[in-house]
């Protein structure tokens, strides 16, 4: 007989494929925190679980759909957004979330990212940014800071990184926020908020990757990066009025603020396929 203080069932059990545990993520990885936020938001969304669909590309974050007990699609590298676009357009009643990483979404899938934002197609993007390609062992990515060391930039990264909020705001996303894995409540709240916000929404979550990025850049433990977030994160408002673009640059190695918050939250017409049902049309053959 179970002890009165031992919970036999967690409220999120139904949303997790527990038969797939243990997961593949490394000790200190931040992805699981964000997955939990997503699951909690689904639970609180009031939208039936059957209507939630999760789509990913390739990489560590992209393994999340495999652990979520939902209709889940683990597509090819960089391609979750166009897959999600097709799926959403034929079944608009579904809540389609793209859950993937910075390399998947901003490098190989970068073109799809900006075009989906431009179209304002109604999909929800959660992007784990750990500043490197973790799954392949810590290579430079499109968000790796200038000068940072990775296995393919052993002398320091000679390239400038993309800045997600800047990029997405410019491309036309109607909602853009950035948090870190220490902001579990804010992440969950924003996911929940975007479920009810029509249009292309984008939530960036900075996450520790001690094995891939940390080890080469003197952030040896996941918890050390969490402390770093706690010490340096500064809440800021809308871009560009309340937060200058330059402030959005992130470099964990420098003693400078990490700016987090909701940077964009506006209304724009959502992409809808053309329908002639209510319009007269001339038959052609």
């Amino acid at each position: 007989m179970a002890h009165a203080l031992v919970a036999e069932k967690h409220p999120l059990d139904d949303l997790i494929r527990t038969d797939r545990m243990p997961h593949i993520w490394c000790p200190g990885c931040g992805i699981g925190i964000v997955m939990r936020c997503y699951a909690q938001a689904i639970l609180e969304s009031g939208i039936p679980v059957e209507q939630h669909v999760i789509v990913s590309g390739i990489g560590c974050a992209a393994r999340t759909p495999g652990y979520m007990n939902l209709d889940s699609y683990h597509t090819t590298h960089g391609r979750p957004i166009p897959f999600a676009t097709g799926l959403k357009l034929v079944k608009p009643e579904l809540m389609v979330t793209v859950f993937s990483g910075d390399g998947d979404l901003a490098a190989i899938g970068g073109n799809h990212l900006i075009h989906a934002a431009r179209r304002n197609v109604d999909i929800k993007v959660i992007c784990i940014n750990n500043f490197n390609y973790g799954m392949t062992g810590g290579q430079v990515g499109p968000t790796t800071p200038l000068g940072a060391k990775t296995t393919t930039t052993p002398y320091g990264n000679p390239e400038n990184p993309f800045n997600f909020p800047y990029l997405l705001a410019a491309a036309g996303a109607v909602f853009v926020s950035r948090w870190t894995t220490i902001h579990a409540r804010q992440v969950k709240e924003d996911i929940l908020y975007t479920f009810h916000k029509p249009g292309f929404t984008f939530i960036e979550v900075l996450a520790p990757c001690p094995v891939g990025f940390g080890k080469s850049n003197n952030i040896d433990e996941g918890v050390e990066e969490m402390w770093l977030y706690r010490r340096r994160c500064v809440l800021a408002g809308r871009v560009p009025d309340e937060t200058p673009w330059e402030a959005l640059q992130v470099d964990l190695r420098e003693e400078r603020p990490i700016v987090v918050g909701r940077f964009v939250d506006e209304e724009r017409p959502v992409y809808r396929p053309v329908r002639l049902e209510d319009k007269p049309s001339e038959h052609r053959g």
């Binding site: 597509t75 391609r79 166009p82 897959f83 097709g86 034929v90 075009h115």
Partner: peptide, 24 residues
């Protein structure tokens, strides 16, 4: 009552049709 979309490239096009087909 169908959906036409011009995508940003052919990679996006094939992914979009796979996604639409996955939805039935």
């Amino acid at each position: 009552g169908g959906v036409f979309i011009q995508m940003e490239d052919e990679i996006a096009s094939i992914l979009a049709i796979i996604g639409a087909s996955a939805a039935g």
